[in-house]
Design a protein around this nucleic acid. Structure first.
Lengths: 344, 344
DNA sequence: GTCGATAATGAAAGCGCTTTCATTTTTGTG
DNA sequence: CACAAAAATGAAAGCGCTTTCATTATCGAC
């Protein structure tokens, strides 16, 4: 059986180009990476051959030789949350503008998986990595340190973080919500929080609420604080539980918009008037929330901006070695229609 | 300034391990990749050293030497659509089960960007790639062919596809919607379609509607067919336009759930009763749609399943070279509350 | 023209692995 | 206990680039 003529079963390499263009491999490499170092005619000749032969560089070889990959990794908890999607979209846009590629990976909120994924990313070779929040296992910090890989975390708000972090003040946002509800004369406030174990954002939001409650001289009733995974159905279920309490809350603060939407849907189902009979607040300001009926009062989290800023910092660090400064972006309360005066 | 003792500024390599364990590099490599080839004591000795020194392999070197990366790429149109999120989640889960890593990249619905991203992925070195749909520029097919990279496409439904494709029958789903609406006595049917240019899924869905209309002897009024980008606001806007027509439709078929939600929100805003005054259908069955009030009649697209099946096929191909068979999954009409009898 | 300075180029040494092939060790058998 | 066969191991040759360093070509000034 005749093999295809002239097409050895092997990719075109830099040597092929060099030979065809009658130059050294160093010149080919320069034509591709530092064109300004070459005389115009050589450069063009080389590039022409590159085109003709449909040459594709081997990233592996490049990475091995130069010790950089122009790849940045990211480990997010899940793909199923529009809020991370927005951050990642911003992050990736900014990176690709500078010709970096993004490698996204998912931990499913599982610390073990996070370690595994990080390990894989580091093996694969990345120039920097994006993490969500500040709760990470010791091994994560260990690996990061040992590999001297550039790191940034987003969504978190801790000041004494071990890694630079571009986020916003979660507790403060919670306080703004409580203050708003208090101004509407709510006394009996419940919360549907995300799972706080291993999730600093959820914890910060919950603790922010609790401490704000105390600031305003309100009672923190633990039976009115429920933790749920982020999903519409869990939100619905949680609201049902809350309404079954001996003295149900007049306002429910939700740990994110998905939970809040769940609560809102459940209220709709039960023909409970929002906000006349029940106030509900969210967290994140997902695009859909403004279209809901009633539209959701929530925190306008700078998700895309965090991604963009993180990418900018990383690129600057990679270019010039500047250490990355933590940044606190603002996240304002967005008062819409799901909050109103407490029923007397 | 004293350097850290013993910590040369260099990563631990396989040679360090070999030296420390007093074996050859081949043995270290085997301990990591083919442990069964080693005697128990050597294997354990090597692995112990690996642990002690916190050794992390260089993926670049591995890739270069073995010509495989255990990385699979994916190019999706956007991160901002839960439907792709579900597919990608399934895909990545299945891949990581077999120790492959997923590299996700975004084209923003732009053919040029798609080429660029593909090129980058191929440079980076991937063992396989996942594409969405079947509309791709010639260059994409070209690159794919030349690199002999394993490819799968999902979401498409064309039989004579140039690449294996695990999808469902978009036109058929459209027909089911039309049949349903016709059975509810709708005569005047409009559509808010996605942008069909360069998007075979959107086109298939739209053409499916048009041809079904004809099958049922209904008139296809082009002024009732609008193309919009997938977003809530575009959906709202489109419905406004549709309602401004001299004879507005009694039912609106939407190209996906996001557009449908937009339409539904707009109807809510204008106090138009759905489905009494207007029927609306979606496409995709996003998790949220069942919670809407009224809940959305839509097509239950097997998004996660496509991702899973694609991953399985890829893994099998990579393992044993089996050529990938196209698969047609089913996508059934889900009749919920946004469709009802046409107003007389 | 000539000469020193500068720009352009090429040869070759890695980068850190995998894998082949030869060599050594272990095992089983008579 | 000897010996062939099988199992375990190591030496070394790449994989396809980048980059240093030496060499050659080009240029400008006299």
């Amino acid at each position: 059986m005749a093999k295809k003529i002239a097409a050895k079963d092997r990719n075109v390499t830099i040597d092929d180009i060099a030979k065809a263009a009658n130059v050294g491999t160093a010149t080919v490499s320069r034509a591709l990476n530092h064109p300004e170092l070459l005389r115009k005619d050589t450069r063009e000749a080389v590039l022409r051959v590159v085109h003709e032969l449909g040459y594709i560089r081997s990233g592996a070889a490049m990475a091995l030789a130069s010790n950089q990959t122009f790849t940045v990794g990211a480990i997010i908890p899940t793909f199923n949350n529009a809020i991370f999607a927005a951050s990642i979209a911003g992050f990736e846009n900014e990176l690709s503008r500078e010709n970096y590629t993004l490698l996204v990976t998912v931990s499913n909120f599982d610390p073990e998986q996070e370690i595994k994924q990080l390990r894989k990313l580091l093996e694969r070779g990345i120039d920097a990595i994006l993490l969500i929040g500040l709760d990470h296992s010791e091994q994560v910090f260990d690996l990061l340190e040992r590999s001297r890989c550039c790191v940034v975390s987003i969504f978190g708000s801790s000041k004494q973080s071990r890694i630079p972090c571009i986020g916003f003040d979660n507790p403060k946002a919670s306080e703004a919500i409580v203050a708003h509800l208090v101004s509407l004369e709510h006394q009996h406030i419940g919360m549907i929080s995300g799972i706080t174990d291993g999730n600093d954002r959820a914890r910060d939001r919950k603790n922010g609420v609790i401490s704000a409650l105390q600031t305003h001289g309100l009672n923190h009733d633990p039976s009115l604080f429920i933790e749920k995974h982020y999903s519409h159905s869990q939100g619905r279920q949680a609201l049902r539980t809350l309404l079954d309490q001996p003295t149900p809350p007049s306002a429910v603060i939700c740990g994110n918009d998905v939970l809040a939407m769940g609560a809102l849907f459940e209220a709709n189902s039960q023909n409970i008037q929002v906000p006349q009979q029940l106030s509900i607040t969210g967290f994140d300001n997902l695009p859909i929330t403004e279209h809901l009926r009633p539209s959701l009062t929530t925190i306008d989290v700078p998700s895309e901006k965090m991604g963009i800023e993180a990418a900018k910092s990383i690129i600057e660090n990679l270019r010039s070695g500047t250490t990355i400064q933590s940044k606190l972006l603002k996240a304002d309360l967005l008062i819409r229609e799901t909050t109103g005066k407490a029923a007397p």
